[in-house]
């Protein structure tokens, strides 16, 4: 199977005043189509910078990045926007849903920048919402939804345009562990059933254990890149949790 992501010696420097800061110091790796990769590393290891480049929001200072077989090195701003629209789905820690806008319209957002007619957009958005189990919440606004539901809307938005990869940047960072497991279960299902490649940035080793592969970053370099032999199943783990925890302990509960 061809690689969906292929980077060669990615370098990214930032100019902080006079001093150049080397954030990425030569990153080379491949990700196969249909993989589920967790990218880990402490703060300042270059995770975010790498994600920005992989998400076509930023360009490397040097080195090459091929997404779905095509280099993105010399694309214009608008060409990058088109690639993000067609090939990449984003999931953020803070959900980033549009306030005062219904869940359905939030999911529809990426499709607004395609040529699809309005009715097809609606249908696709509704189908995506159903996939994440929120088919009946289409008319709710984000403020009327729980954190987990909001993140599920965000996932529906990420997958609505059938992307090659979904980039999830700390998607469970703002959620309690039970909800986090729900989210991981959805990712695993999208990965397994729809064959979408998923890149998960996290500093939570528990969450990383649901991926098939783990890449560790440190100081702008890849420290390790290994296959997880027997990934956990989020659905099973979630079922194993004690039912209905008291509200007070929900927030601080830590998964064993």
């Amino acid at each position: 199977m061809p690689d969906v992501i292929e980077t060669t010696d990615l370098v990214r420097d930032f100019q902080l005043g006079e001093i150049p800061v080397h954030v990425l110091k030569g990153i080379t790796f491949r990700i196969e189509r249909g993989d589920f990769v967790a990218i880990m590393g402490p703060s300042g290891s270059g995770k975010s910078t790498l994600m920005n480049i992989l998400g076509c929001l930023d360009k490397p200072t040097s080195g090459t990045y091929k997404l779905d077989g095509a280099g993105i090195g010399d694309l214009t701003r608008d060409q990058l926007a088109e690639i993000r629209n067609k090939k990449i789905g984003f999931v953020f820690q803070q959900f980033n849903l549009l306030a005062r806008t219904s869940a359905l319209e939030n999911v529809e957002l990426p499709l607004l920048y395609t040529d699809l007619p309005a009715r097809e957009r609606r249908e696709k958005a509704l189908k995506a919402l159903q996939t994440v189990g929120l088919g009946d919440r289409g008319q709710h606004q984000p403020s009327q939804l729980s954190g987990g539901q909001q993140q599920r809307v965000a996932i529906a938005r990420a997958m609505v345009n059938s992307p090659k990869i979904i980039l999830a940047d700390e998607p469970t960072g703002a959620l309690d562990s039970r909800t986090s497991l729900e989210i991981m279960a959805i990712f695993q299902r999208l990965n397994r059933d729809d064959g979408i490649t998923i890149l998960l940035v996290t500093h939570d080793a528990n969450m990383a254990s649901y991926a098939n592969r783990k890449i560790n970053l440190k100081d702008g370099r890849i420290e390790s890149n290994q296959v997880i032999v027997a990934p956990h199943d989020a659905q099973t783990d979630r079922a194993a949790l004690p039912q209905e925890l008291p509200a007070a302990t929900k927030e601080v509960e830590v998964r064993q």
């Binding site: 629209n85 067609k86 920048y113 395609t114």
Partner: peptide, 16 residues
């Protein structure tokens, strides 16, 4: 600004 950033991330071009 965040809304604009989000729209750009999901594929809005300069023109949009």
């Amino acid at each position: 600004t965040r809304e604009i950033g989000l729209r750009q991330a999901v594929g809005a071009r300069t023109q949009d």
